[in-house]
């Protein structure tokens, strides 16, 4: 039973958030759109209308198609590792094990490591071809070391990013797993269902929503992977590890081409929106429940 006065107050309290978020969203977006149609370089103060020129330039740049492919490979690779690995890890931790709490903490920890630290630790101490842990492990088997960032640059970045996101998937899936009805499993067990069919017919359907959520949320973050690339390969060798955000960054802050960078930004928005559309539907459904 809200009075009119209450309603007014409620609106007033909501207003700052709405107004700030509106400004936060509309002003930079409008600016990006505006710049994307301008010939504007930080090196050259004269600007002029560019029409679709920036878009044409960005889309036909050979770096663009490779950036799209790299973005997809990176997102896809990390998703594959984190969802498949996360499911198995969650199942493993959910078993009756000693020190479950500590195991959980150990597994979730990489998620809290800041991206620049994760990338540098992996780049140097793990993947260094001369002194790194992998070089040492390979040498134990008499194998030659791998020069990770020269031979398999994109895969190396994928591994580093997956190391950060596998814990996230595990944590979410484990939480979902623990809400699974134990009696159902027991009943299935008594009816003679094996571990594999229990997994396929009971566990997996139960996890499907959590898996969808993991895929969508990770995709949003993975589409913007930046720091890991900046501190390990700087997009190289060549453009081997340049993804869409990194390409926009190169255009803006290294080539000072505001127009083209903005066009790239608009394209990044379009890609992100396609993903967001599906995520919002799932979250929205949940809001009604």
């Amino acid at each position: 039973m809200a009075t009119t006065q209450m309603r007014t107050t409620a609106r007033l309290m909501l207003a700052p958030s709405v107004i700030l978020l509106l400004i936060w969203m509309v002003v930079p977006l409008a600016a990006t759109l505006y710049y994307s149609f301008q010939n504007y370089s930080l090196l050259n103060p004269i600007t002029s209308f560019a029409g679709w020129g920036n878009y044409y330039y960005f889309l036909t740049d050979p770096a663009f198609s490779s950036a799209v492919v790299n973005t997809l490979l990176l997102v896809g690779g990390v998703l594959l590792i984190s969802v498949v690995g996360g499911t198995f890890l969650a199942l493993l931790i959910d078993q009756p094990i000693f020190g479950q709490g500590i195991v959980r903490i150990l597994v979730i920890s990489p998620f809290f490591v800041m991206p620049t630290v994760a990338a540098l630790v992996w780049k140097n101490m793990m993947m260094n071809p001369i002194y790194g842990i992998f070089a040492w492990l390979l040498s134990l088997f008499g194998l030659p070391p791998i020069d990770f960032f020269a031979q398999i640059p994109l895969l190396s970045v994928t591994i580093i990013v997956a190391w950060q996101w596998l814990p996230f998937a595990t944590l979410i899936l484990l939480t979902a797993l623990q809400s699974l009805d134990g009696e159902q499993i027991e009943a299935a067990e008594m009816d003679g269902a094996g571990a594999v069919s229990r997994f396929i017919y009971l566990v997996l359907p139960h996890l499907s929503r959590a898996i969808t959520v993991v895929i969508l949320i990770e995709t949003i973050f993975l589409l913007s992977v930046f720091a890991e690339i900046l501190v390990t390969t700087n997009g190289g060798p060549g453009t081997a590890t340049t993804n869409l955000p990194f390409l926009v960054y190169t255009q803006a802050l290294l080539s000072y081409d505001v127009g083209v960078a903005s066009a790239g930004g608009v394209i990044a928005i379009i890609v992100a929106n396609i993903v967001a559309f599906f995520l919002m539907r799932i979250v929205g459904k949940n809001l009604e429940a």
Binding site: L14, S17, V18, L21, W24, M25, V27, P28, L29, A31, T32, Y35, I220, L223, S224, F226, L244, P245, V248, Y249, A252, L253, V258, A261, S262, G264, G265, V266, A268, I269, V271, A272, N273, V275, A276, L279, M280, V283, G284, L287
Partner: peptide
């Protein structure tokens, strides 16, 4: 309003880096 607020999170940072 809640959904709209959430949608502002979906905006890739790189898109607004320049402005």
């Amino acid at each position: 309003i809640l959904m709209w607020m959430l949608s502002t999170k979906m905006l890739p940072a790189v898109a607004v880096l320049v402005p």
